[in-house]
Every structure is written in structure tokens, then in C-alpha cells.
């Protein structure tokens, strides 16, 4: 089955991102296709490389990176949500004249159209949130 995932909550604060990760990983391991993981609301905070959890805790950001590298997973942060919450890549830094970036590759910042497109093209959109 072709799936897409939407995540509406930030890491550590809320379980949604953990559940979404385990769901996505299980789906991929069982041969399903995951077209896209779309991060919305505080979910965009999953994509900052400045995240530094205690060493004995799970590293949520790195966990997404490893999954993305293994399965060529498309990780997309909503641009409007990202701008509000200070998530910046090179393009956004240039456009909005910011002197730093914090996005973790291979996360990318793009528009809400990517969510709509994923919903149209996937068999199921699975939403994780509060």
C-alpha cells in the first residue's frame, strides 16, 4: 500500500512523533511504500539539527535521518509552520535575511501543496497528533 504520514506535534513534548516514527518504520519494513512524511504545526521541530537530547534518551531527529537514508524517505517541513517556529534552510535564510540555518538534512522545507499532493496520490494519509 502507498502511504503518506502527517505529524502535527513536536518531538519529546508529545508522543505523536514517536508513534508516527514506529508506524512509518513498521510500514516500510513490511514492504509498504511511504511516499512522504509531512511535518506540520509544532511537528516541524522534528527537523532541526540543533536538537541535543540527553545521551540516555532516544534521538528523535537522528532517528528520522537514519530511516530516510535507509528507505530514501521524503521528509517535508511545511514552510509556513517552519517560518513561524524558526526552522531555516539555506533558501529561507536568504529570503528572510537570517544569519543562520538549522535544518537537518535530508529534511526539506516546502509548501502545503506537498501535503495535499500526498493525500491525493497515496492510498492512505495517516495523521498523528493530539
Amino acid at each position: 500500500m502507498k502511504l503518506s504520514v502527517q505529524i502535527n506535534e513536536g518531538p519529546y513534548q508529545h508522543q505523536a512523533t514517536d508513534t508516527a516514527y514506529h508506524f512509518t518504520k513498521a510500514a516500510l519494513e513490511n514492504g509498504h511504500e511511504v511516499m512522504r512524511v509531512f511535518f506540520y504545526h509544532d511537528g516541524v521541530l522534528n527537523g532541526t539539527r540543533l536538537t541535543t537530547p540527553p545521551q540516555d534518551d532516544r534521538h528523535i531527529v537522528n532517528r528520522w535521518v537514519e530511516l530516510a537514508e535507509k528507505y530514501n524517505l521524503d521528509l517535508v517541513l511545511c514552510v509556513a509552520a517552519a517560518q513561524r517556529r524558526g526552522l531555516v534552510d539555506d533558501g529561507e535564510a536568504e529570503r528572510n535575511k537570517k544569519n543562520a540555518t538549522n535544518i537537518q538534512e535530508p529534511f526539506r522545507i516546502s509548501g502545503l501543496g506537498q501535503l495535499i499532493e500526498a493525500a491525493i496520490q497515496s492510498d492512505r494519509l495517516v495523521v498523528f497528533g493530539d
Partner: peptide, 14 residues
């Protein structure tokens, strides 16, 4: 932010 999705989604004619 839900409204923002609705407004953007309008372009997709669903």
C-alpha cells in the same frame, strides 16, 4: 493552520 491548508488545498480541485 487548518484553515491555511484548506486555502492552499483549493488549488487542487478536490
Amino acid at each position: 493552520e487548518s484553515l491555511e491548508v484548506v486555502l492552499i488545498g483549493a488549488a487542487f480541485d478536490q
